[in-house]
Design a protein around this nucleic acid. Structure first.
Lengths: 344, 344
DNA sequence: GTTAGCACTCGAACAGATTGAGTGCTAATA
DNA sequence: TATTAGCACTCAATCTGTTCGAGTGCTAAC
């Protein structure tokens, strides 16, 4: 069957209305609200076709129609118009990023909050994997009787702490010296790209300090291997309760459950962090608990190398156009701010 | 009116039953379930008295009785028996603390998770205020073109990072030197107790490094003054949805809302961090959104100086006895583990 | 002082009846 | 031939009335 211009218009009308009201839409409503210039009867026939094509669904015999996942897919791929953000919203995001750019972790948490605030959906943000970032500085400091602390500062302004176990950890001045050696090895590179076995061989030949450094290299090695070592923040989880589709308690609960598990969040956002915007609708995602949700996500970039992902989760009936705009706006701001900083 | 032994028994029966079932309890149910040796009619009279005293409430004329906040208060103060934890639960907590003791932040987050898992309520944990902890080491490292990073390690095994703005931040070797001076000032003390104005005067007399250090001292000063600079973690928020008292959507939502706001969480846990266990029932707390909840909280102590607070939030009908036991168990473990470490 | 008995209350649960938004089909119309 | 008006039909949602039962308070007897 052919998807005529007219059918598309009707589908769009159904989706727009359903996004706004969460109520199934009938032919008469479409005829009245939109000026398509057709009677309800004609629309009825077209809707029957759209249903045959799997783009809309009738919840029960005497109800209106509701978009299917396939219908949303067609909508976001072909029909959706970008929505302009209001000046207020743009400013809000701009200021936020300006003001917090010097503390990346905080910036990310605040960004998540801001997105949830603007969109009323739930935001999930993943930090980049530290091992893929360029190291600016590495520092060893005393921690306790059995361990030392390693502080990692990256070019992209992240600071991370690690505790490394060690019998009789060296005094501070020794640690200082070790830090110098370590910095020579890793500064300006990322941990993934360093050939740790090579470094290890080198250290073998050194004295006591070399032995201690071996421990640290071992630790870094483990970090590199364990991929899941990424922080994920959520914000606006409570917003889920706003939507009538989750007024069934068990549905709401299963979404909450999913959002409390870090593994699930990481799976959701994916590890590839591609910059392209991706929309995952309903059952398209692999996680059973959130099959009634859609996720819009995009990788973000602060420096040349820093990749994490921002995801916005809402009901399949979410306002795709608005969310996409918000995401674009944020990406734009982040890169603009960075360029301004580099220039100044 | 006198609170006879018999009345207390009946009150206890009502509370126990209500905690278990969340259904109003009638006189006949009490007569059948508990072997008080009284007829339902007698119990009815006693219940009428208990209601006059404000200890129980009748939701509507033909319903059973439900404990009031005042009733719970009397219960937790006088009637409640400590509940022994199962060996499984004890072991679980013990292992958890043993295994994560070297990373305090992680330990606290895991502890929160564990408590929620065992009790099925929501856990809130506040980190101690860093300025009140004894500094073990302080380190300045490069950060970006406009700022340096300050790393603070405390005797009680916390590591915190701060970004300090600074025009033309010093090179690493200068920072190293500055770190040495800074360490001399703060090591072994807590930031609150240092007389910063005295330090400032001293630094005035020093050269360029002194000037840079002044900036840092200023920053620390601000930290000391801003009290709210505390991390708070929550876990098991979704558990709220389990309880029939929150099957009203708006009620659930307002609780979620409160739990997403850091200020509210800090207010809830309080800033005093006293070690005593405190139980705050329903309306006794000042925050409107959670007036249908009770909070059981206690300060925790890892070293001699480290104080934060653990709070467990549930419906007023929560299992006070169990939660109290869990909290005691955790406190016991934390101090035991610490002692063992100090000894070994 | 305790209890059995009884009238009374009131929410919950159930069963029709009614309503209205929606459909599909058919025949008339442009 | 495409569109539309008209009509019968469907079914969830809502309303109404009834019954049921868990609970109470009161009174009189033990």
């Amino acid at each position: 069957m052919l998807l005529s211009e007219r059918k598309l218009k009707i589908l769009q009308a159904i989706i727009n209305d359903y996004i706004a009201t969460a109520e199934p839409i009938g032919s008469r409503t479409i005829a009245k609200k939109n000026d398509i210039g057709l009677s309800s009867a004609t629309i009825r026939n077209e809707m029957s076709d759209l249903e045959d094509m799997g783009l809309i669904i009738q919840p029960h015999a005497s109800a209106g129609r509701v978009p299917s996942d396939k219908g949303y897919r067609l909508y976001v791929d072909n029909l959706m118009n970008r929505k302009e953000l209001s000046a207020d919203q743009t400013n809000f995001l701009y200021k936020l990023i300006q003001e917090n750019f010097d503390n990346i972790e905080y910036l990310m948490q605040e960004t998540a909050k801001a997105i949830s605030f603007i969109t009323n959906y739930t935001t999930i943000i993943s930090e980049p994997q530290i091992i893929k970032l360029i190291v600016k500085h590495i520092q060893l400091v005393p921690y306790d009787e059995n361990s030392i602390a390693m502080i990692l500062v990256t070019e992209s302004k992240m600071i991370k702490n690690y505790v490394i176990k060690m019998q009789s950890p060296p005094e501070f001045d020794v640690l200082s010296n070790m830090s110098l050696i370590l910095n020579k090895i890793v500064m300006g590179k990322n941990l993934v790209d360093i050939d740790l076995s090579l470094v290890k061989n080198e250290l073998q030949t050194m004295g006591e300090e070399g032995q201690a450094l071996l421990k640290i290299i071992d630790f870094i090695w483990k970090m590199v291997l364990s991929e899941s070592n990424v922080e994920v923040y959520t914000s606006g989880v409570k917003n889920i309760l706003t939507f009538p589709e989750f007024s069934d308690f068990n549905k709401a609960k299963s979404v909450f459950q999913a959002l409390e598990e870090k593994d699930i969040l990481i799976t959701l956002l994916g590890k590839d962090h591609t910059e392209d915007l991706k929309i995952i609708i309903g059952n398209e995602n692999s996680i059973e608990q959130i099959k009634d949700c859609s996720l819009i996500k995009a990788g973000y970039k602060l420096g040349d190398e820093l990749y994490g992902t921002i995801g916005i989760l809402g009901p399949t009936r979410m306002n795709y156009a608005e969310v996409v705009s918000v995401l674009y706006e944020i990406e734009k701001n982040l890169s603009q701010t960075l360029r301004a900083l580099k220039g100044g």
